[in-house]
Simulated assay, not measured.
Amino acid sequence: MSTQSVANSAYPAPDGVLIGHLTPGSEAWEEARTGLTITATEIAAVVGLSPWQSRFSLWHKKSGLAVPPFEMTPAVEWGNRLEDAVADKWQDEHPGFLAAPAGTWRHRDRNWQRATPDRLIYRQAATEFEAPDQAEELLEVKTSPFGDDWGPAGCDEVPLHYRCQVLWQMDTLGLRRTHFAVLIGGYDYRECTVDYDEAEAQILRDAADRFLDDVRNGNRPPIDGADATYQTIRVQPDGLDDVDVEIPLEDAARYEIAQLGMQAAKTELTAAKGVLLDHIGTGKRAVVGERRIAYRTVRDGQTYSLNPYTSKDTAA
């Protein structure tokens, strides 16, 4: 990022409203994110692209109904622990700029549109007696175990749910560029850049409007196959009544067929894995041309597991 690009009027200073620098998990932080608001981490769920939430689970949250408690997974914990380290790496790579905590913001006109970016990027003052200029771009810090959904360094290829997140952040603050600093697999550091797209932002705003209308009108989204949906349904009942509940025949058949299908799929997967291991022998990877299919791990000289490659086009 050059000084010229930051100074360019195409990248204006924030025109959103700063709510404050709120401590995650505090009452004020929760209040800024609940109710009839949509945050940057929620917008991907609104459009059905979030790996962690579904429209169904988010609808229940916004409706004030029971939702599963937040779970501090190892991935979340280490992502939080490493955020400052990755941000420091970006800082080291960009002398002359300062990436400072951004705080929680709302859109100047749409009070329900909220965002808490990781960092605001400032040009550093020439001397300690000068205040930094207005922040004009954003920095988003991520960690990931795999790099399949991330493009090479310097590109704009980021996971789609993160693209939704930063478009919402830029739209909320009135900014036009976000830099990503991502640490993949604990050692592969990459930087990517996403520029604001008005047409995409409008799609997200319209979807959020419709979603909030559904919350106000009590229009529950249909049950889908997301784990977040199932976990949300699990926490709705309170207690246990020893009664029989009549259910539609088609729903019973769907459940029973799915159970049979799961057993058949497990059997077929076991057979398919056996065939691949038989092909691999003492090798490590199964490939078709330049495409990697699966890899073998070994403990004490014996096969421990056979694991699929998640990218369809991983080069051998």
Results as ranks from 00 to 15, higher is better:
Ser2Lys: 14
Ser5Arg: 13
Asn8His: 14
Ala10Gly: 11
Tyr11His: 15
Pro12Ser: 10
Val17Cys: 11
Leu18Asp: 10
His21Glu: 11
Leu22Ile: 15
Thr23Ser: 15
Ser26Gly: 13
Ser26Arg: 13
Glu30Trp: 10
Thr37Met: 09
Glu42Asp: 09
Val47Phe: 00
Trp52Pro: 00
Gln53Asn: 12
Ser54Val: 03
His60Gly: 05
Lys62Ser: 04
Lys62Thr: 07
Ser63Ile: 13
Ala66Glu: 05
Val67Trp: 04
Phe70Trp: 13
Met72Ala: 15
Glu77Thr: 11
Trp78Cys: 05
Trp78Phe: 11
Asn80Lys: 11
Ala85Val: 05
Ala87Ser: 08
Lys89Ala: 09
Trp90Glu: 03
Gln91Glu: 10
His94Arg: 03
His94Ile: 04
Leu98Arg: 05
His107Ala: 07
Gln113Asp: 03
Asp118His: 06
Arg119Asp: 08
Leu120Tyr: 06
Gln124Glu: 13
Ala125Met: 05
Phe129Val: 13
Glu137Cys: 09
Leu139Thr: 00
Thr143Glu: 00
Pro145His: 02
Pro145Ala: 04
Phe146Pro: 00
Asp148Ile: 03
Glu157Thr: 15
Glu157Met: 13
Arg163Gln: 13
Gln169Ser: 14
Gln169Pro: 02
Thr178Gly: 06
Ala181Ser: 14
Ala181Leu: 10
Leu183Gln: 00
Leu183Thr: 00
Gly185His: 00
Gly186Glu: 01
Tyr189Trp: 13
Arg190Asn: 03
Val194Tyr: 02
Asp197Ser: 12
Asp197Gln: 15
Ala199Thr: 07
Glu200Leu: 08
Ala208Glu: 02
Phe211Asp: 00
Asp213Trp: 07
Asp213Gln: 14
Gln231Pro: 04
Val235Leu: 08
Asp241Trp: 04
Asp244Tyr: 10
Asp244Trp: 10
Asp244His: 10
Ile247Arg: 10
Pro248Leu: 07
Leu249Ala: 12
Leu249Val: 15
Asp251Arg: 11
Ala252Met: 11
Ala253Asn: 12
Arg254Asp: 12
Arg254Thr: 09
Tyr255Leu: 08
Glu256Phe: 14
Met262Asn: 08
Leu269Trp: 09
Leu277Glu: 14
Leu277Ser: 13
Asp278Ala: 15
Gly281Thr: 12
Val288Gln: 13
Tyr295Met: 01
Arg296Cys: 11
Thr297Val: 07
Thr297His: 08
Val298Asp: 15
Val298His: 05
Thr303Arg: 01
Thr303Tyr: 02
Ser305Ile: 04
Tyr309His: 05
Lys312Ser: 12
Ala316Pro: 04
